[in-house]
Design a protein around this nucleic acid. Structure first.
Lengths: 142, 142
DNA sequence: GTGTTTGCAAAGTGTTTGCAATTTA
DNA sequence: TAAATTGCAAACACTTTGCAAACAC
């Protein structure tokens, strides 16, 4: 499916509102991230998709862009494995399944989980957010 | 405090039960991990403590040992930040505060949190465990 | 003695950085 | 044209690996 025919003014606006110039690279990455529904991507995956779409972007720019988007609250960073970050296009409060066999991260539908009531930290720090990760594995084949 | 005067037969037993030879390095690391109450350590931190105790161990051996202990269910690996693993000496089901300012990981006292009821994964995989991480930050100084 | 474990150094992975060249407004 | 952004390559932090030497039983 080729999406390169729309004006994408909504994406331009979104970037502008975040104080980011709508450059070719940022536009392309934003399209991939935000114009296809819910996504959970690593930097490498996003880079690969951009190249497939014939958008020339460097990996370094992908990383920079992901962090800029995260700071601007367009993305949320999720850590489930050492040495790899996922970026989630859903910035609302919600939780995740992480399938350790496939490495796939999925949203838990809102309302499908009892969001825990958490106690106050004893060290005086402020709660920023609560992450619930349900770790799963494919059944053994044996 | 110097603990090097006890026989540590309980630690020897623990290693033997896990099918691990009680070598000098493993004994020293096990003492640090298990003889001082609840701990949340990174490989680097454990390595540094061992060196402070005048135990010569290489970082590679610390990593190997942490993974062997984790496989043997003597430790549990916790991922809260990209590029860094914590190992928790408490292998019971429990949850964590993670202070993003200090990088300190703390147990949430059992009973202090409403453990969430989670839905079934839609992909047929089996739930292995549920991690709840309460991310906190020190209040701003401004 | 034999098999296990260790330590070193090298390699690996994902991520970040410095800086000149390019692009945007 | 002034400031922001990009791409490259080098640097980074953490972790894993290969293999000879040292150790446990």
């Amino acid at each position: 499916m080729n999406n390169n025919h729309r004006p994408y003014s909504h994406i331009v606006d979104r970037l502008r509102n975040a104080g980011l110039r709508p450059t070719r690279q940022r536009m392309a990455l934003a399209r991939i991230l935000f114009d296809g529904g819910q996504r959970h991507l690593t930097a490498e995956q996003l880079h690969a998709e951009a190249l497939q779409d014939n958008v020339r972007v460097s990996l370094a720019t992908v990383y920079n862009t992901l962090h800029q988007f995260t700071s601007a609250n367009l993305l949320r960073e999720i850590v489930v494995e050492p040495g790899r970050s996922y970026f989630d296009t859903n910035t609302d409060e919600h939780h995740h399944f992480f399938n350790e066999t496939s490495g796939r991260l999925e949203d838990i539908p809102p309302g499908a989980i009892d969001v825990p009531q958490v106690p106050e930290p004893s060290d005086g720090s402020d709660v920023r957010r609560v992450d619930v990760i349900v770790r799963t594995r494919d059944p053994r084949q044996s």
